[in-house]
Design a protein around this nucleic acid. Structure first.
Length: 274
DNA sequence: AGGTCGGCCTGGCAGC
DNA sequence: TGCTGCCAGGCCGACC
């Protein structure tokens, strides 16, 4: 049970007021924990759901009641580290503590009922890439007619959810697709390659516990290992693992984008039928 | 309507 | 040393 929640930075609940968030959460039981896209969900015993988005630098760390008995533990390291940027503290009745901290103040939290949440997600989020719904046909359907670059297509959460800048680069490299290729230029073999590239890149990230470039830590305060295995991301000037050529960096829709010009061939826009 | 871009934020770092 | 300015990026709203 959550005994109390303290919102220490009103930005966390913006545009709603911290008091509303606190009143809705205080004294409630967490009956389930879930996720939709990049949104974390804490389902409460009265049907409401706490929704938290970490954005880039937010972290949610669970301090166990016995955490302090184990100096040197990553959780303790993380507790110290998060103290400076602590935005919300959930005090649990077992003596544990759930902390949301965020140096850049981009992360947000709010409370919503099931119906509102469905509406909220329906207008923003598409298919889960690690579900059975992420088929070749789905990729074909959602990319059809798109003229914008593939990179933008992957970053758009209304198509596939959960893919951010890192995994978009890694997925496109795995798929052998150029980030500037128009979404609608893909043929069936490219739909398959892109689907597999996205799934492989995300699965590799999960296996390695995520990518900790600067801030990312898991709920126990541990770093991930994905950043050590980037194939292209943040590797400008380094050698391609496949062909040995030079990795390039360009900017696509305002985001740094890394790719291998040799392995990732640019597709031409489909010409209109006469 | 799809696509693009700037703004929100702050820490870290390069450059002077 | 200390200042300025840029970069990082998920999402949103404004604009074309």
């Amino acid at each position: 049970m959550i005994e109390t929640v303290e919102v220490l930075d009103p930005y966390f609940t913006k545009p709603d007021l911290p008091g509303n968030f606190e009143r809705a959460v205080n004294g409630r039981e967490i009956v389930d924990v879930g996720r939709r896209g990049k949104y974390l969900l804490l389902e409460l015993d009265d049907g409401l759901t706490v929704v938290i988005h970490l954005r880039m630098t937010g972290s949610l760390v669970l301090l166990a009641p016995d955490g302090s008995e184990n100096p040197g533990d990553a959780r303790i390291y993380e507790a110290d580290r998060s103290e400076r940027h602590l935005k919300a503290r959930f005090t649990l009745d077992d003596g544990g503590e759930l902390r949301f901290s965020d140096p850049r103040r981009f992360g947000r939290g709010f409370v919503a009922n099931g119906e509102d949440l469905e509406t909220y997600f329906a207008s923003r989020l598409g298919v889960e890439p690690l579900s059975d719904d992420f088929t070749v046909e789905a990729v074909a359907a959602m990319s059809a007619g798109r003229t914008g670059p593939l990179k933008s297509f992957l970053l758009d959460q209304k198509g596939v959810v959960g893919v951010g800048n890192i995994y978009a680069d890694e997925a496109l490299f795995r798929a052998g697709l150029h980030p500037l290729s128009p979404g609608g230029s893909m043929k069936p073999e490219h739909h398959l390659a892109l689907r597999d590239g996205v799934v492989e890149a995300l699965q590799r990230g999960l296996d390695l516990g995520g990518a900790s470039i600067d801030d990312y830590r898991d709920a126990k305060g541990e770093k991930g290992g994905m950043q050590k295995e980037f194939l292209v991301h943040r590797r400008e000037g380094e050698s391609c693992v496949t062909c040995g050529g030079e990795i390039r960096r360009i900017v696509v829709s305002g985001r740094s984008t890394y790719f291998c010009p040799t392995c990732q061939k640019r597709l031409r826009r489909k010409s209109k039928r006469k």
